[in-house]
């Protein structure tokens, strides 16, 4: 049975924890708004890029000499798994769920006898991945210095990935991140970066409509435009993944901190009840002692 003083100390410590989690929740909420706006602002570009790529890709895919970024290297032996996570903790299951999804994917690849290379973006994922697959990690991008994610921050990462691809260090690249749906729901997403995923041929008729049903003049030529567009697409996809991730992280943190605040509240209530009971018991005990003392006389 804890003493009255112990209980008092506990209550005040839980109260100050609650204050911290409450503040963190508010901060996360305001950051979430900004991250969400950024993610939404980036959508039009990615959508238009996708349309153009789909149209062009379907036209060029059958031709010989198409870019390996589009059709792949012809084998799937080495896969680069890019795991994008957050820089900070205290955001619920956010990082663990991304790492878990990536891990399931990696285990599958290893079972199929393929070589896996891992690129970590974000400190938290790196820490978790390092313990599991230390020797497979080929790179780690620390994003902790970045306050507001800009396209300029995603570009060097994409440039690194493309340089590795050009050197023939991997055949397929997959990106793992959490897609933001709401503050409560974040969907861990696996996205293939290289080769660029193309819808199945069944959509061929549709793609004409997407491009306005028009026959285009290409300047310089379809292949050259694709050569220019595909590397940029990788950067855009990475950027989009990072933005979605940033919004998801804040959403997850907000929810986690909201839960923590509520739990702290419950705990304070329980502790207060125990405290009051203990105090009452002490008073009653003292009274009984006095009364029985008086009766004995």
């Amino acid at each position: 049975m804890p003493s009255l003083k112990d209980l008092k100390v506990r209550i005040s410590s839980v109260k100050s924890t609650q204050k911290i989690t409450k503040a963190m929740k508010m901060v996360a909420a305001s950051k979430l708004r900004r991250a969400q706006d950024a993610a939404e602002a980036a959508r039009p570009y990615a959508e238009r890029m996708e349309k153009v790529l789909t149209g062009l890709g379907l036209a060029v895919k059958g031709q010989p000499g198409a870019s390996p970024l589009l059709v792949g290297t012809g084998k799937e032996d080495v896969e680069l798994v890019i795991v994008a996570t957050s820089e900070r903790g205290l955001c619920g299951g956010f990082n663990t769920s991304i790492v878990k999804a990536a891990r399931a994917h990696i285990e599958g690849l290893i079972r199929d006898g393929k070589t896996v290379k891992i690129l970590c973006i974000g400190r938290k994922g790196h820490v978790l991945m390092r313990r599991l697959y230390g020797e497979k990690i080929v790179g780690f991008k620390d994003m902790s210095a970045i306050k507001r994610m800009g396209f300029a921050d995603a570009q060097p990462i994409a440039a690194d990935i493309l340089a590795m691809f050009k050197r023939g260090e991997f055949d397929v690249a997959t990106l793992f991140y959490a897609k933001f749906q709401s503050a409560l729901v974040q969907i861990t997403t696996k996205q293939q970066l290289i080769p660029a995923p193309m819808p199945e041929a069944a959509n061929e008729n549709e793609s004409g409509d997407e491009l306005g049903g028009a026959i285009y003049d290409y300047e310089p030529g379809e292949t050259e435009i694709l050569e220019d567009l595909l590397p940029r697409n990788v950067a855009v996809q990475v950027y989009r993944g990072l933005l979605e991730n940033a919004a998801s992280e804040q959403g997850a943190r907000m929810t986690a901190m909201d839960n923590a605040t509520r739990n702290a509240g419950d705990m304070i209530d329980n502790l207060t009840v125990t405290y009051n009971r203990t105090r009452q018991a002490a008073i009653t005990k003292e009274l009984i002692e006095i009364i029985s003392g008086a009766e004995a006389l």
């Binding site: 285009y216 003049d217 300047e219 567009l229």
Partner: peptide, 12 residues
Amino acid sequence: TALPHHAPMMST
């Protein structure tokens, strides 16, 4: 120069 009703085209 792009004017209204330009023929569909794509250019880098």
